[in-house]
Amino acid sequence: MSVSYVPVQWNPNKWKYDAVLIALVVVYIIVFLRLGTPAADFTRPVDGAILRIRAFGSCAFLMLTVILAIGPLARLDKRFAPILYNRRHFGVMTTAVAFTHAMYVLGWYFAYAPIPRLEALLVSNTSFGQFLGFPIEALGIAALLILSVLAATSHDFWLSFLSAPVWKSLHLMIYPAYVFVVAHVALGYFQDAKSPVFALIFTGGALTVAGLHLASWFKERRFSPSTEKWVKACKPSEIPDKRAVIVTISQQERVAIFRTGNSFSAVSNTCAHQGGPLGEGKIVYGHVTCPWHGFSYKARNGCSPAPFTEKIPTYNMSLENGVLFIDPKANQPGTDVEPIIVEGVVHG
């Protein structure tokens, strides 16, 4: 949280996370080059450089696919949350793998020419007007540039420097990056590979990402937006102790109603850190705790406990006929709201 910025605030979980990431890449590349390729049916071997281009390229695609699957998976099943935490490390590692792929391409397909490599990259294929034969390098470069910007700004310093909403929208660029990568592969290697295996894995990966996002989107639509003045939320007994229910009050706004025993408070569902879904968090040590990176807030006023200074908006609530209602007008971040006490409520 906002104390001081060191390159990375290491803790044992992060070390393990990064060790797993490195193992993942190493295993992938070794299996590709040492086990799979020798088993392929070649009249004569494929060039070493081209094998490495393929190995690192396909590895980066699969890693990006996993990264994009983590978000919706964590919403569908909370046990995925620890992978979401530190997802940025996954992103930085993927950028490095994609960069390695690009360097091999540059050093092979664009070297040995009478013109310098970068110039060769620009002039060699300019068929931007056609589908098949489109310069796939441009798509790859676009994706790599986005990934590099995201990797470079992944640190918390940038998060606070740019403010959470700006940082968050910047990092949504991961989606266009994935679209570029899919097009890069679809118009390139996908066309050359004659075996259906690659086609299956590639389309399967891209469809999984799309499908998971749809599924988690459906899950969130359980509570539909309302235009009423005060928004009907739910019965207090529907909220498990130390947990929350998320209520959608408009297209962009969601509110999390937290329960601690018999006391109920409503805060914004959006974490001040990276916009994590607070309503999927839990009351830990008496504070609302974000499921993504563990920022915490007092439920009644939305303030992080000292020494931290983050604040989120709170909402007024009322209890009518045993049902909680929310005033859709948010209070200023940090506004204290007396919790609603409901005697004798049990989890139904």
Binding site: F32, D192, K194
Partner: peptide, 10 residues
Amino acid sequence: LSYAISSTQS
């Protein structure tokens, strides 16, 4: 996946 992709290269 690595094995599947690499062993079926054209």
